[in-house]
Amino acid sequence: MNRPVLALLAALGVAAAISAPSAKADPPAAPADQMKLQGIWQLQGDHTAIKTTSGKLPPFRPAAKAKYEANLAARKAGHPDFDTAQKCLIPGLPRSMFYPQPFLLKVEPDQVSFLHELMHLHRMVYVGAKLPINDDLDQNWLGFSAGRWEKGDLIVQSRGFNDKTTIDTAGIPHSVDLMLTEKLHLVDKDTLEDTFTIDDPKTFTSTWQTKATFKRLPDDTEFSEYICTLANPEAVASK
């Protein structure tokens, strides 16, 4: 074996020693109080036309109020063209949380994931991640979600949304500046409450809150294959 090769191997050996990870143990599992949120959850009650926690309509700015009323009228007339979810598009947030299809909430130390039966959506919450400013995010359907734990509650902040979705089925609009904060709180071992704080100064005169409650289903509950486009492939094909 010639010297340059030996020297190279030696150098690589050193490089390998430097770049190799120190013998790391597996990352720890999530703490027990966080793991309590893991499970299969199903929405309780009808959330097609949501109200604030005080039972009122959200504090619309005038243009948003006009848009909301136009959306209500369009649905009443049987032509809810504003409703992209009818065209099998991802319903966005928080609306994806307002469907009766259950979701598996999977808790990992660095990630809490919503694996929905609805449209087989998956929405990841990155625990401990820094929430980028809106300008640094693509505008998409489910946005980007960063989470943190506070005394057993999961606080999730999401933004980076497009403005093609509505907040509920009825048709509460929002802008691309929507910032959604959720507090997921375990009321008891089988009851999960999500408090949504909606912050979108272009659409509303102040922030407002709404709540949803979810009941735990058995851990071996199986999801059906949810195919939106099967009923209406033209909804996709004609776009």
């Binding site: 099998c88 598009l89 991802i90 998409n140 492939p233 094909a237």
Partner: peptide, 16 residues
Amino acid sequence: RLTEYSCEENNRNAPQ
């Protein structure tokens, strides 16, 4: 990290 992939949004190859 997985990013969002919405086939339904702009299906450029929708069959006829």
